[in-house]
Amino acid sequence: MKYLLFISLIIILSGCFQPDEILPKVKDYTTEITVSTKGKQAAYIDLSSADKLANSSESPWHLKFQNTKGSWSILLNTLLGVSVHNTKNTNYDAIDTAYPIHDIPWQLDGTSGTGTQSAIGVWGDFEFSNPKSYKNVYLLSWSDGTFLYYYKLQILDAGTSAFHIRYGTLDGSFTKSQWIEKDPNFAYTYYSLLTQEIVNNVEPDRSDWNICFTYLPDSIIHHGSYPFVPTINKQVGLYQALLINDDFTEIHLDTSKTFSTIDYFYAKDLEYTDVDGLINLFQSWEENQQKLSLKDNLCLLVKEQNSYYALKVEEIRTDNPTEVTIKLRTKQL
């Protein structure tokens, strides 16, 4: 009987699947992000990192060159007020101080549903693996608050993985030719016309960020009486915006569930898109009360490969029109 009891005890205690552990509920994070048209123009968010903020610097730049293979956009730093005019003249030396810079239309980069639209636009024939430039000379203008700068720029050509530009002052006192290599680790390569060099660390490595809070220029007419930061183009204003790293990230805007009830099982069955350049996403303008109000029921769901995140903006402070502080609540699903 003793032996039987002993054997029965072994049978009962041995050889069974272990039940699943119970893990504590994952805490959500709250992060404060500040962006400004004057100082830190963009705040990059890495949702997989502990503090959610990705490394980026405030260094001023004037032009940024697209690094994606086969893409050749050249964009302007609109927050610095860099604007462009296409002279449609291909003779670099012919553009000089005699050019009527005060009587010409100046263009800023614009915004569309798929991202930023370049004011420089199509500068060459991109059918070739190394595009053939039309060699138009562009005029660039910006102000640092003290001085007003006018430069001329000619895109000479491109290699299969580099841009070749020439730029200088209108009086011809300074001219520089520069190759700008595409760096596949970053979405854009940033260039300063004043320091005449590539500016590093403006944005994090392209695999190290998901979303970015910044300002984007857009037509004032589209946004009615929504507050904006004015630009040199009276029809264009700067608005708070959200960029999406479409190499790795897709988003879904959800208004049907509260932040606390969103979980992985809900998130994984939703449809995600790779839209970019979302302006005034988290706020709406109350026409009657003439004030901004937070969209309380809006949650942003972010998908990065097999990882899902729920984001909710809890507070937006805009004491100064050129600066905004955003309180962002994040949880990984």
């Binding site: 552990e21 893990l23 504590p24 994984k268």
Partner: peptide
Amino acid sequence: LDKDLSNGSNQ
């Protein structure tokens, strides 16, 4: 099976 071990749900 995807499981959430904080609330025991799975799918």
